[in-house]
Amino acid sequence: MRRRQVLKLLGGGTAGLGLGTLGAIPAARACDLFPRQHAWRFLVLRHGNVIGEHLFTFSRRPSKGGGDFVVEVAIDIAVDLLGVTLFRFTHRAEEVWREGWLHSLISATDDDGALWRLESQRRDGALRGKVNDVPFDVSGFVVPASLWHRDTPRTQALFGTIDGRVKVVRSEALGEEAVKVGGDRVQARHYRLTGQLERDIWYGPDCGLARVAFPARDGSLITLERQ
């Protein structure tokens, strides 16, 4: 079944999921559409031990319609025991945003030996592409599950940047908390995502992603701490 058909079954089309709102998502408070920083670097921790790095890089790129905003994501994780690697995860992705809309997304992922290749581009009002040669299309405004976007806690569906699947989620605002970002502590808004994607996410005063926590497949807690 094609992705568009799945979305219609879930909620009468993408609008029922909050993914096809066609720009109707209200703007976040006093926040830029895109981050002003050039990069965010996170350490990935498990049981308090560093097991990897998660890096976002932001840049501008000339395009026919003006300037594209480009988000590059690099994740490298390895869990070792007595010199033996028990688990390895690598992910590379590039999101290209044009006039506030996700224009294209490509990614390559090695999830402990399971390989994923995703290529997509916006055409005729939908994000269309393939994951491991299986076609998909998602219409409407798309917020990716990379979590950096300011509207992540404000939508009811996130687009999986690894497998291309739409994740139906619920978001709960848990108030403000002080979290560590680099050497400072900042007040951050805490949200909890549940459903087909489980994440605790914190956004700082500028709406930048400040911290992430989620359960791993083995039940351990994984934390991303921004440096």
Rank of each mutant, 00 (worst) to 15 (best):
E72L: 07
E72G: 07
V73K: 00
D76H: 08
V79I: 14
L81S: 06
L86Y: 03
R88D: 04
R88P: 03
F89Q: 00
F89M: 01
T90G: 04
R92N: 08
R92G: 02
A93G: 09
E94K: 15
E95I: 01
R98N: 09
G100R: 02
W101K: 13
H103N: 14
H103T: 03
L105C: 07
I106W: 07
I106G: 11
I106M: 08
S107T: 06
T109S: 12
D111T: 00
G113C: 07
G113H: 05
R117C: 11
R117A: 15
L118I: 06
E119C: 06
Q121M: 11
R123E: 13
R123D: 09
A126G: 10
R128L: 11
V131P: 09
V131S: 11
V131H: 09
N132E: 06
V134C: 01
F136D: 07
F136I: 13
V138Q: 13
G140L: 14
F141Y: 14
F141A: 12
V143E: 03
A145D: 15
A145R: 14
S146N: 08
W148R: 00
W148L: 01
P153Y: 00
R154L: 12
T155H: 00
Q156V: 06
A157I: 02
F159E: 05
F159D: 03
